[in-house]
Nucleic acid binder design. Structure first.
Length: 470
RNA sequence: GUCCCGUUCGUCUAGGGGUCUAGGACACCGCCCUUUCACGGCGGCAACACGGGUUCAAAUCCCGUACGGGACGCCA
C-alpha cells in the first residue's frame, strides 16, 4: 500500500508556523515511506476563500521546498459529491433531518452547561417520524452517532485514546442551506483521495471520534492518525503575533533561510537522539512517528537565530549574494550591479560568519557597496584629532604597495604599529576600521582592504583625514 | 462546567526499571584566542511538578493531586 499524506490548509492568507510544521511532518513521512504528499485547500467556507490567500500558502510551501504530488485541489469543488454522500446516508437511515433553530440549539447548550452536563445535541429529531416535521421549515442533516458504549482511537502519537459515546453527539453534516460541513467534507475527501495517514494538530483529536463515526456509517476504511502536539508561544498558550513572527512569510522577511526553518520546526516536537543539525535528506531518512513528542513545545526565537547563523556559514557565497540582494534594496535602496556583486562575493566569507540573519548580513555588507558618508559614534572615537597621523601613515605605506593583497597589507599595518604604537596593532587597526567601514566592527581589515582595492582604500583614508581635520 | 491530552535544566530535548552523583543543543556566566564584532576552544550555572503505591531497585510502571494546554459551532 502506498502511503498518502495530505496538507489541508484553510486559505487564511498566511502560513502559520504551526501549519508549516504539520506540512513538514506530512511531507517527511510521505517521502520517508516513498509515498505521496498532496495538498487540498479547505475552502468549504466560501466567505474566507480568495485566490491570493491560497497563493500565499503555496508560495510558503514552495519556499520551504515541500513539493507536493498533486495539483492543489479545492474542497469546494467537491461540494456535490459531499452532498450526494449525505443524501445516501439519509436514504440508508444513517442520518436524519433536524429542524431545530440555531437559537433553540444555543439555548439547549446554555442549560446543559449551566447544569454541568455534557454539552451535546440532545437528539430531539433523531427518532421523530417525518410526519411531525414542520412544513417548509429549514432543516440540517445530522449523522446518527452511536449512543452507548465507547470508542477508541489508536493514534500513532497519542496512543489509544478512549471516549464514551455519550460524549459524542449527532454532528451536522449538511447545513440548512444544503452545503456540507467540514466534518463531512474531510472524511469524504480523505477517503476519495486515498489518504492513508492523517497527521494534524492535536486540537483535532476530539474531531477524530466524530469523523470515525462517519467512516463507520459509510462502511469505509479509516486512515491512520497521528495527532501532533501544538506549538506554544514563549509564554505558553497560543503562539501569537505578540511574541514576534508567526508566519513563514514573516520569517522569510526577517532573513531566515528555509533550511533553518525546516530544521528548527523538525526539532520542535521530534527528535532523533541528540541530533541537532539535520538536513532535509537526513530528515527524510530518519523521520518516523517514534520520534514525535507528546507534549507541546514553546517556540524559541534565540535558538532559531543560532541555527540560522549555522546555515548562513554553510550556504554558498553566490547564493547568499542573491538572497541578500532584496534586503539591500529594501534597506538602502541600492541596486547591486555586477561590480558590486563581485565585491560582495569576495567579501562574503568574512561577512557571513558574523551575521545571524540576512537582515544583519545586509547591514554588515553596506560598507562594501556604498560610500562612507558618515561615521557612527563609536567609529568617531577612533577618528580623533591625535590619531590622524595614523591614517596618514597608513596612506603613505599603502601608496607604495604594488600587490595590494591581504599579506602585504598586514605587513604594512604591523610595520606601522611597530613604528608608531609600540607594536600595538589595535592602535592602527581601529582608526583604519573606522575609515573603511564607518563603524567599529567588521571582518578582518586585511581582507576588507584587499576586497575594496587600493584605490578605494586610499580614497576612504583621505575622506577620514578630511573629516578629522575639518 | 464536561471530556481529552500533557508535565526532565530558562527553552528544545536524550532517557523507555539498575550503566543517571540525569546527557546534548540554544540562552546565560567565566576564561582562552584576537585588529573590532562575531566564530571557535575550554569551563561553569541549571531539571526528573507534587504525593502515594508496585519493585531488591523508578526520571522510567500504576493511582491521585496540582499546574498547563486542547475540544465542546449550521468555523475549519
Amino acid at each position: 500500500m502506498t502511503v498518502i499524506t495530505r496538507f489541508p490548509p484553510s486559505p487564511t492568507g498566511m502560513m502559520h508556523i504551526g501549519n508549516a510544521r504539520t506540512a513538514l511532518f506530512n511531507y517527511l513521512y510521505a517521502r520517508h515511506m516513498g509515498g505521496k504528499f498532496v495538498i487540498r485547500i479547505e475552502d468549504t467556507d466560501r466567505a474566507r476563500h480568495s485566490d491570493e490567500a491560497v497563493q500565499v500558502i503555496l508560495d510558503s510551501l514552495d519556499w520551504l521546498g515541500l513539493d507536493y504530488d498533486n495539483t492543489p485541489e479545492s474542497q469546494f469543488a467537491n461540494k456535490q459529491r459531499h452532498i450526494d454522500v449525505a443524501h445516501e446516508m439519509l436514504a440508508k437511515g444513517n442520518a436524519y433531518k433536524c429542524y431545530c433553530t440555531p437559537e433553540e440549539l444555543q439555548e439547549m447548550r446554555d442549560t446543559m452547561k449551566e447544569e454541568g452536563r455534557i454539552v451535546a445535541y440532545n437528539g430531539k429529531w433523531r427518532d421523530k417520524p417525518e410526519s411531525e416535521a414542520p412544513a417548509d421549515a429549514p432543516f440540517v442533516v445530522r449523522m446518527k452517532a452511536p449512543q452507548d458504549g465507547h470508542t477508541v482511537v489508536s493514534d500513532e502519537v497519542q496512543g489509544d485514546v478512549k471516549v464514551e459515546n455519550k460524549q459524542l453527539d449527532d454532528m451536522i453534516i449538511l447545513r440548512s442551506d444544503g452545503t456540507p460541513t467540514y466534518m463531512l467534507a474531510v472524511v469524504v475527501d480523505d477517503h476519495d483521495m486515498g489518504i492513508t495517514h492523517v497527521m494534524r494538530g492535536d486540537d483535532h483529536l476530539n474531531n477524530t471520534f466524530r469523523q470515525n463515526v462517519i467512516y463507520d456509517l459509510l462502511g469505509w476504511d479509516k486512515p491512520r492518525y497521528a495527532h501532533l502536539p501544538l506549538i506554544h508561544g514563549p509564554s505558553g498558550g497560543k503562539l501569537s503575533k505578540r511574541h514576534g513572527s508567526v508566519s513563514v512569510e514573516e520569517f522569510k522577511n526577517e532573513g531566515y533561510l528555509p533550511e533553518t526553518v525546516n530544521n528548527y520546526l523538525l526539532r520542535l516536537g521530534w527528535s532523533h537522539g541528540d541530533d541537532e543539525i539535520i538536513s532535509m535528506q537526513e530528515a527524510i531518512k530518519l523521520f518516523d512517528f517514534d520520534g514525535i513528542n507528546k507534549s507541546a513545545a514553546k517556540f524559541d526565537y534565540a535558538k532559531l537565530e543560532s541555527l540560522n547563523a549555522h546555515y548562513m556559514v554553510e550556504a554558498d557565497n553566490d547564493r547568499l549574494v542573491d538572497l541578500v540582494t532584496p534586503f539591500i534594496k529594501q534597506k538602502f535602496n541600492i541596486d547591486l550591479d555586477e561590480p558590486k556583486k563581485k565585491t560582495l562575493l569576495a567579501g562574503m566569507n568574512g561577512l557571513k560568519e558574523r551575521a545571524k540573519t540576512l537582515v544583519q548580513l545586509a547591514d554588515e555588507a553596506r560598507f562594501y557597496i556604498a560610500d562612507i558618508t558618515s561615521y557612527d559614534e563609536k567609529a568617531k572615537k577612533h577618528l580623533d584629532q591625535y590619531l590622524v597621523f595614523m591614517l596618514k601613515g597608513l596612506k603613505d605605506k599603502f601608496k607604495v604597495l604594488d600587490n595590494f593583497n591581504h599579506d602585504v597589507i598586514e605587513a604594512a599595518c604591523r610595520a606601522l604599529a611597530e613604528e608608531q604604537a609600540e607594536g600595538k596593532l589595535g592602535k592602527v587597526m581601529m582608526p583604519l576600521r573606522a575609515a573603511l567601514t564607518g563603524t567599529d566592527k567588521s571582518p578582518s581589515l586585511f581582507e576588507v582592504a584587499e576586497v575594496l582595492g587600493k584605490e578605494e582604500v586610499i580614497k576612504r583614508l583621505d575622506a577620514a583625514i578630511e573629516f578629522i581635520e575639518k
